[in-house]
Nucleic acid binder design. Structure first.
Lengths: 282, 282
DNA sequence: TTGCTCCTCACGTCACGTGAGGTGGC
DNA sequence: TTGCTCCTCACGTCACGTGAGGTGGC
């Protein structure tokens, strides 16, 4: 090699100086980010100049800022004006900020789980999920149900009315718990609305009306078994909502995913939902 | 279907209730996480029971905590004792914490870049990288070099000595800048050590000694061109170190990656390194 | 002749998403 | 017959890492 020329580096040397793997350099070539200055036509050997080191460093610096190779290619093209350049960095900044917040929330949930595991010595029974539900049209009836009685006793009345109106009830039935237990006629009672989804509005009845139950974000868990054993599901939901800095903004709901006369109560499957909202910032 | 049996759900219904995609359910089956209760041998249709919803929710909750499907499989196996269970969560917590710190650091770097772009209206010239370098054995000579003179003027003396000792100098030469400019004999001068890597120790000489230059973490950037225009590289390094909450813990180094008599100074390639350390926590 | 470095495919990663091409029940 | 739902491959994603099988220069 002519000593008066700049040093040509084989891929291994350039990789060592640049502190990257050979595979990375080949990958960057395929991605159009960094082409060897020379290619030996016979052997296919790649040759690099040290002049290319700043470009490699720029690629690695941008990657370190979180840009994809495709974005880096655009950034290196040089045909961006300052506003576009700034835009890409502002966007990346926002995405990174968002990611951090997501991970912080995750950390909170992990810590809550860990505490449960340490207290109970086992994986908690109920898994809470955040979900968005759609509004739904229902035929509903609201009443005070004395303690101990079947919460959904209005269900058969609604079904009878629907059948009389020749309307098919849609699965599954919702119960909206408008209050906790309270006194009513010397008994503890609960103010509950039984709501059966229907495909279309019905004429009013003195007891049964058609309305739209609102949708929105819910903290949700699934309970298997009879209604009396549902307390822990409520506790799990409450704790999750508290630990994750949400708060309740409406009536709790029970969704009778699996329930029928011919089933044992131990086979019932009920989803419990609490409508929630992010805690306001302090 | 016998009405006295539990409802069998087709994959689409189960997916809708569980708020996941059909592809996800099929994927979880392949991963051994959630098998349909029944498979129609003729059609291949998958059938699920609502009883499986809690398991799906558990899978999704664990995924939401950041576990991989393989880890979730282990967590669901149930053959973990509390210590192992706790261990997996503690590990995940630590990893998440680590990730957040990494992203925070990234955010700091993005903000610094963004500020540079807004001030200079262009992508900064120098890209700083963090790298770890190995200790290296060198033949070195330290002297005070007056302002304006070639910093590496000791280089030829060392090379001559090495040649006399029949030792090949290894590329590339290092300069260690032991001080900034200071007064010396009525002139500004800089205390600089020229260090040529050698494969083996040499006998002492009144001017040239063999020693090991320490390794460690460096903030590094690459300058192309002559030494006089190197100021901006130093500024870029200083700012990066400050912005990223490191601090300098040793002498700056210049590495003559590309430099020779026959080259134009504009073709010189020099790496500038500052040994650094994480800022102590407040 | 033996290492050493380089070459080009091709496949794997992770958790699915997205067709392509085909079948079964109302 | 026409939608609708389901089926099974197969490929793509992103930035490389890791062989397998082969070649060129000291």
């Amino acid at each position: 090699m002519d000593m008066r020329e700049k040093m040509m580096l084989k891929i291994g040397e350039f990789a060592r100086i640049g502190q990257v793997s050979i595979a990375t350099l080949r990958h960057y070539e395929k991605a159009g980010l960094l082409k060897p200055t020379a290619l030996d036509a016979e052997t296919g050997y790649r040759y690099y100049l040290l002049d290319q080191l700043p470009r490699l460093n720029r690629i690695l610096a941008l990657k370190d800022l979180g840009f994809s190779l495709e974005q880096i290619a655009r950034l290196l093209e040089g045909d961006l004006d300052v506003l576009q350049l700034r835009g890409m960095f502002v966007l990346k900044q926002a995405q990174t900020q968002q990611l951090i917040e997501t991970e912080q929330a995750r950390l909170t949930r992990i810590a809550a789980r860990l505490q449960q595991i340490e207290q109970e010595g086992i994986m908690p029974t109920y898994d809470v999920r955040l979900k968005e539900v759609d509004p739904v049209l229902v035929a509903s009836m609201r009443e005070l149900v004395p303690l101990g009685e079947n919460l959904g006793r209005a269900y058969s009345k609604i079904v009878a009315y629907l059948s009389q109106q020749r309307v098919q009830p849609l699965q599954p039935t919702l119960l909206l718990l408008h209050s906790s237990y309270e006194w009513h006629n010397d008994q503890m009672a609960i103010d509950v609305e039984t709501a059966v989804p229907v495909p279309t509005a019905l004429p009013e009845n003195e007891q049964i009306s058609t309305r739209t139950v609102s949708g929105g974000w819910m903290a949700s868990t699934v309970h298997t078994g009879n209604d009396l054993s549902m307390g822990k599901a409520f506790v799990a939901l409450y704790n999750w909502i508290k630990d994750n800095e949400y708060h309740v903004i409406g009536t709790p709901r029970l969704i009778h995913l699996q329930r029928a006369e011919y089933l044992e109560p131990s086979q019932y499957v009920t989803e419990v939902q609490f409508p929630i909202e992010r805690q306001r910032e302090k």
